[in-house]
Design a protein around this nucleic acid. Structure first.
Length: 404
RNA sequence: CGGAGUGUAGUAUAACGGCAGUAUACAUGCUUUGGGAGCAUGAGGCCCGGGUUCAAUUCCCGGCUCUCCGACCA
């Protein structure tokens, strides 16, 4: 894409009413635009990055047997009355139709919607297990939105729900999902910083598991076992606690941001909605459920928190909206290379704007695309290559670029 | 929701009880082209409501907004 036709623009100054790094950088770089506290519009670069994260997650969910669906964000009050959460869930956005005086809910999560849906499509053990997932904007009336994309009132999330005939089958699938999540964060480039964390399990399990990315920008305190790369959330941690895997006593307290959460729901929702099936013996049983979430928009914020320098964002290749950022020091100089590269299917943002070279360099650092290419008169046919995450410059031929 | 702060142009900021200034971005022209270039010209602004005052962007009260701390977080 040509940068001259890119919708968003960079900003020279940090916004004065933002403290968090991800908000400052993403706003300045023109990835997002702030509407109000905890609510952002996604501009082309931000949306592309978001979709890249989404696609990586989708790939692993499909590989784990998930079927992608889309459930409405607008919910009837009645669904939430079934579980009693209409009255008890404080983050629930409720509103009333001006015309009919009907009450509605904006979906903060989808157990109340997915359970009746699966009920309508499952009647036998032969239909199970089944897992469905979706990507969707969720709405939660957070008392205090904060930290840029990290805690918003409207946020993008992947939520997957699994339904099983028995506990062992849920346990197996839960294990499978744990592996899938690990693979997702690895592919997103934050695998080293993201640890499986034991958290409160609710009524049906001893633990739930969070995937916590270590960062000072996080809200959570976890106790890390450096040997096993797992942690215990402070909310269930007690002094005598040891690593749940190896028994190590000295766990390190450290701040982290929750980027994923997997949870065994048991029969809580299948009971409420009477989501039953007939087993081999013709007996009627309630399905056993699990749910598995990943905060997609929060991940974009978390990745920026984890990967930046004083000049701007440094995006991992799987997330970056483009792989290459092509800069020309004189107008038109990069045109030919740009056409050649896009002709061969390479992902390149070509800065063809009529601005000074200095401004282009500064913007390239701010946007944080993985590989910067420079063409100039002094280089001739050669191309200067610099990785955003590194200092070194290389002067290469086109053939070398192709190998990248 | 409790506490603290904040609010001036698209963005970042300054000053002031009496014509609101600068930088940047924007428009036009010329110059320039490897680290946010230069000159000239132009357009653009005091969160809302009330009070005090001859006069309020400025002081007072209330509201709203955003940020931070806390509480909250299937």
């Amino acid at each position: 894409m040509k940068q001259s036709s890119l919708f968003s623009k960079t900003q020279k100054f940090n916004p004065q009413d933002e403290e968090s790094l991800n908000a400052k950088l993403l706003l300045r770089a023109g990835y997002v635009y702030k509407i109000m506290a905890g609510v952002y519009s996604y501009l082309p670069l931000g949306l592309m990055a978001l979709k890249n994260i989404e696609n990586i997650i989708r790939k692993h969910m499909v590989a784990a047997g998930g079927s992608e669906i889309y459930m409405s964000a607008l919910h009837p009050k009645s669904a939430w009355e079934v579980t009693g959460r209409y009255d008890t869930l404080d983050v629930l956005f409720r509103f009333t139709s001006f015309y009919s005086r009907t009450d509605y809910v904006l979906g903060p999560t989808h157990e109340e919607i997915v359970t009746p849906l699966v009920k309508a499509n499952v009647s036998s053990y032969r239909d199970l297990p089944i897992s469905v997932f979706q990507f969707q904007w969720k709405f939660r009336d957070e008392k205090r939105a904060k930290s840029g994309l990290m805690r918003g009132r409207e946020f993008y999330m992947k939520d997957l729900y699994s339904f099983h005939t028995n506990q062992e089958d849920l346990d197996d699938y839960y294990e499978k999902m744990t592996k899938a999540y690990t693979a997702v964060f690895q592919e997103l480039g934050i695998g080293d910083k993201t640890v499986l964390t034991y958290a409160s399990g609710g009524t049906f399990a001893k633990y739930s598991h969070e995937f916590q990315m270590i960062t000072d920008a996080g809200e959570d305190l976890i106790h890390l076992c450096e040997k096993c790369h797992v942690a215990v959330n402070d909310e269930i941690y007690e002094e005598q606690n040891t690593c749940p895997v190896c028994g190590e006593k000295n766990l390190q307290p450290i701040k982290a941001a929750e980027v994923g959460n997997i949870f065994k729901l048991g029969t809580k929702f299948s009971k409420a909605f009477e989501m039953k099936f007939k087993d081999q013996n013709g007996e009627t049983k309630e399905a056993i459920m699990g749910c598995y979430g990943i905060g997609v928009s929060r991940l974009l914020g978390a990745i920026v928190e984890a990967s930046h320098d004083d000049k701007g964002i440094i995006l991992p290749e799987g997330v970056a909206p483009f792989k290459f950022h092509l800069i020309e020091t004189k107008r038109g100089l990069g045109q030919e290379l740009y056409e050649k590269m896009t002709g061969e299917g390479m992902s390149v943002l070509y800065d063809d704007r009529d601005v000074s070279a200095g401004e282009k360099f500064a913007d390239a650092d701010l946007l944080g695309l993985p590989i910067r290419l420079v063409v100039s008169e002094k280089l001739g046919d050669k191309i200067e290559v610099k990785r955003r995450a590194k200092e070194e410059l290389e002067i290469l031929n086109y053939e070398d670029i192709r190998k990248l």
